[in-house]
Amino acid sequence: VVEAIKDLVQDCNFDCNDDGIQLQAMDNSHVALVSMKLSTGAFSPFRCDRNIALGINLNSLMKVLRAAGNDDILTLKAEDQPDSLNLVFESPGQDRMSEYDIKLMDIDQEHLGIPETEYAATISLPSAEFQRICRDLSALSESVSIEASKDGVKFSCSGDIGNGSVTLRPHTNVEDESKSTSIALTEPVNLTFSLKYLVNFCKASSLSGSVQLCLSNEVPLLVEFKMGAGYLRFYLAPKIGD
């Protein structure tokens, strides 16, 4: 998760309570927002005696996380009114244990209320497919138009060297649900977004085999990666003509 969001947001409050750990942060330009939840089910055990916000610089956290092995067990600990976060990595065979403390920061973060939205279009597709489309089209243009209709979803762009588009039609993969593409539509939508941000969101592709795009005309796009016990959501403000 940290790897997926660290290029978008730098200083974040990890809000801890009985439900687990949540994070909401906007990028500096106020165009994209990250919303993450790791429920208690993601941890074993999980204990939180008092609601607490852990202000963490993600670059610092990455420096420490890089010291962990892929299969290590990670324990995160913070005291009441902490000035640091304690991280312990234990190898699966328990023959190696490393321990780090990183300094916490006071982060005065703007919190946005995200209204419950009935989206006009909800598209589910393999996350690798979405990543490929964003990467391919970003070579041609800064922006992509996403047009969803009952026939399919069309990603199109135009730039100095020419233009391009990718159209996906609904498709069911019976062996692997995450490789399916589905489109639920109440009305057609057509919106334009910055590809730079979408390419950035796709760094979360390794967290989930499929991704959900939720769109309504003239509202921010929701890109959701569902995780075993939580989610990573990105909101992106659209580009709108005058």
Binding site: H30, V31, L33, E110, L112, I114, P238, K239, G241
Partner: peptide, 14 residues
């Protein structure tokens, strides 16, 4: 071309 909007256009601070 179309202009990039801010999230503040759509979401309120709480």
């Amino acid at each position: 071309g179309p202009k990039q909007r801010s999230l503040f256009t759509f979401f309120q601070k709480v």
